[in-house]
C-alpha cells in the first residue's frame, strides 16, 4: 500500500493531478446541483404567486392589472 501511495517517487505529481481533477469535477457538479435547486425553488414560488398568468395574457390588460399587485411583492423574495 505504501509503495502504491509512493508512486515510484512521483507521488507529488501523480496525486495532485488526480486530486485537482476530482476537485474541479465534483465542484462543478455540486454548483450545478445547487443552481438547479435554487432556480426550481424560485420558479415554483413565482408560479404559485401568479397561477393565472396564461389567462390574464389572453384576456388582456385589465385582468393583468388586477392580478399584478400582490405577486410583484411576492417575487422579490
Amino acid at each position: 500500500m505504501n509503495e502504491f501511495l509512493h508512486m515510484g517517487g512521483y507521488a507529488a505529481y501523480v496525486w495532485p493531478a488526480y486530486g485537482i481533477a476530482t476537485l474541479v469535477l465534483l465542484g462543478l457538479l455540486v454548483a450545478t446541483w445547487k443552481g438547479l435547486r435554487n432556480a426550481e425553488a424560485t420558479l415554483k414560488a413565482l408560479e404559485s404567486a401568479r397561477p393565472a398568468r396564461r389567462r390574464t395574457r389572453n384576456t388582456g390588460r385589465k385582468a393583468a392589472e388586477q392580478s399584478a399587485g400582490t405577486p410583484a411583492e411576492a417575487s422579490e423574495g
Partner: peptide, 17 residues
Amino acid sequence: IAQRKIQTLRLAVAGGP
C-alpha cells in the same frame, strides 16, 4: 430553462402585458 421561465415571469409581473 428554469431561469428563462423565471425571467419571463418577472418581466410579466413587472410590466404587465
